[in-house]
Amino acid sequence: MNANNQHSKLQLKNAANAALASILNLTLLPVIGFIALYLIYKKTTPNNIDHYHAVLGMKINIIAAFVLFVVSGLMILLGGFNSPWTWVYVISYFTIVHTAFIVIALWALVRSWSGDKLKSNQ
């Protein structure tokens, strides 16, 4: 099932740390988590599993930042700050989309523990 044997212990550790930093940036430690993720990325070498998970984490977080803040910002800009309907859309949208990113990052963390990429056939 897992690809542990193909990767060194250090790579696996870095991959797990990168995936953890990715989740932390999405939940408890925004920005700080991303800085940690970037620092891990700097230590990795292309084509290794830790590099893959560091890049994946950065992609997830950059896309999340865009679809959460930019789209929510546009909703507020177009709908008006003082319109109740703006907040109906923003709160519902933000909550469900944010959770979706957390769940994806969780799966990435689990895959990093076993030294696997996000999808089995990648």
């Binding site: 897992n2 969780l106 689990v110 523990w113």
Partner: peptide, 16 residues
Amino acid sequence: FFMMTLFAFNVVNKRR
């Protein structure tokens, strides 16, 4: 609940 999701994902990922 977060841990339960992590737990279920991990166990299914490690399935034999």
